[in-house]
């Protein structure tokens, strides 16, 4: 059960215990973070689950595949180098301490 910290657009923070194997999107939704609306339910079609993850975590995360990259690069105006789709990140114990920044909804 990794602990995940979300930094919300108003800069408030919440830390939650995630279930191993859940996606980061699911964890956000389950914990009432409404900025992640996840319209497509995690099938990599909507980009409404956009988040930022500090580059220091890069090693421990499966890199974005082509689908995710295409979506990120083309859907979102404020895309950054550390942008990810939270529905494509699946959590494991090694992600304990992960800090995720949630942008103001772009949608």
């Amino acid at each position: 059960m990794p602990n995940i910290t979300f930094i919300l657009p108003d800069e408030s923070q919440i830390t939650v215990a995630a279930n191993d194997g859940d996606s980061l999107m699911q964890t956000a939704v389950d914990n009432g973070i409404e900025q992640i609306s996840a319209d497509c339910g995690g099938c990599c079609s909507c980009a409404t689950c956009h988040c930022f993850i500090d580059n220091s975590w890069k090693e421990k995360l499966t890199p974005a595949d082509d689908m995710e990259t295409d979506l990120l690069e083309n859907a979102i105006d404020n895309v950054q180098e550390n942008s990810r789709l939270s529905c494509q990140i699946f959590l494991a114990p090694e992600h304990d301490g992960l800090v995720v920044e949630i942008p103001e909804s772009e949608w």
Partner: peptide, 10 residues
Amino acid sequence: QPKSFMITRK
């Protein structure tokens, strides 16, 4: 071809 979808949508 997600890229075509996304760019068009944009």
